[in-house]
Amino acid sequence: MHIIVCVKQVPDAKDVRLDPRTNTLSREGVESIMNPYDRHALEEAVAIKEQLGGKVTVLTMGPPQAESMLREAIACGADEGVLISDRAFAGADTWATSYTLAKAIQTLAPASLILCGKQAIDGDTAQVGPGLACRLELPYATCVQKTRSVSTDSIEVERMMDDGYDVLRLPLPALLTVVKDINEPRVASLKGKMKAKKATCTVLSAADIEADPHNIGLAGSPTQVVRVFSPEARGDRKVFTGTVEEQVAQLVDSLRPYL
């Protein structure tokens, strides 16, 4: 079984900076880590590979430095790394990113399963996974907390909900986004690290994946960040007292002027 894991290099949450000019996250010179949710997606892929056999490819779109993260993924059990890297991809929003990832996936060996983290800790949109599934016209489940069973033609998973979980069976190929509860990622093994050191990652440009220039990067992104700012501190607070009925009445009265 071929499993593709989409990973993203994100700034370490301890060290986040914004570019004041573009209002996008500044990546250069900031300590980068593999998006924590993606680490769980990778672990799940490697565990499934260990069970069923096959191959795990890690895929990322990012600057050349993102290759170090692909090597880290190989050390943790992935077989191959693919880096989609081109200046033309810069400034992509989730729409352009899912387009780019989909185009790249179409150039790779067909996959039975595509795994993503639930969301990246920098943008926090949780849109790329579902967006990618739609682009590829694949069934998908988000927020997967457990793989119940998997075979070469279907997978049964638990999707985390606010008040419990849904059990879903998806025919393969399919796409899943995972939450942290799904597993405990392993520490990269010594043999994995040695393999990662020698591995060569494939680098794909916009031309390699035959991307339409209008659909990639900042130009292909309908979302333009106009302004990024820290929210103001909270305003006035009011504490209501009395019985529940009295408090509700006071609340309604104080909201009425704004309706």
Binding site: R186, V187, A188, S189, L190, K191, G192
Partner: peptide, 20 residues
């Protein structure tokens, strides 16, 4: 088990028997 997965149990085993 985590230590095993990380290959650390292989450190003290000769290479011809699968160690490091």
């Amino acid at each position: 088990h985590d230590i095993a997965k990380a290959d650390l149990f292989g450190i003290f085993v000769p290479e011809e028997y699968g160690g490091l």
